[in-house]
């Protein structure tokens, strides 16, 4: 089983962080994982993406031509990567910033107003964590409690408030639509 995930949006939305959490969670489960950032003459506010592969076999290339899962945080990323999703793949999109819907019926689309939810929680920076919760709910990548632990354990125990805020953002994403 191999999962090829592209996460994309603006710099500052925590996209690379989110990808690293997924890769770390896979590594700790003894899966083969790769994480590859887009790199280039980047600038503040510019687009940013990373490719994460989780697999129980050897990973040949860390580069993903056609993702089976796309997590899009802005319209540019949506337009660039949505057409590349494999048939039967999944689209996750932040509907606060993406007001389009794909004209494809061969993929499953999951929209969540992640930015609005993060703002309502008073933690606008945790839009990525809200999305992580929603992603975990609607995929079989990882068990809920396991990845929630990976997320909060990566924060120092001295920052209890931050742990708590991350947990809350994760739960809001996980529980969205219920």
């Amino acid at each position: 089983m191999t999962n090829k995930i592209i996460l994309a949006g603006f710099g500052g939305q925590g996209i690379l962080f989110l990808g690293k959490k997924l890769a770390t969670a896979g590594m700790d489960k003894d899966m083969n994982v790769t994480w590859l950032p887009s790199y280039g003459p980047e600038q503040r506010g510019g687009t940013c993406n990373c490719s994460v592969i989780l697999s129980d076999t050897d990973i040949s290339s860390p580069i993903i031509g056609s993702p089976d899962t796309l997590v899009a945080f802005n319209i540019q990323s949506y337009e660039k990567f949505m057409p590349r999703i494999v048939t039967g793949g999944k689209l996750f999109a932040d509907s606060t910033l993406i007001d389009k819907h794909p004209e494809r019926n061969d993929i499953d689309s999951y929209f969540i107003p992640a930015t609005a939810i993060a703002n309502d929680l008073g933690t606008p920076k945790l839009v990525n964590v809200v999305m992580l919760g929603y992603l975990i709910k609607n995929t079989d990548f990882f068990d809920r409690d396991y990845i929630r632990g990976v997320l909060t354990d990566s924060l120092p125990a001295s920052k209890a408030a931050l742990r708590e805020a991350n947990g809350r953002a994760f739960d809001a994403g996980y529980g969205y639509g219920e």
């Binding site: 690293k20 890769a23 790769t34 994480w35 590859l36 950032p37 790199y39 290339s61 580069i63």
Partner: peptide
């Protein structure tokens, strides 16, 4: 690719 990618 080898320089930029993360692996365990």
């Amino acid at each position: 690719a080898l320089g930029q990618m993360m692996e365990p």
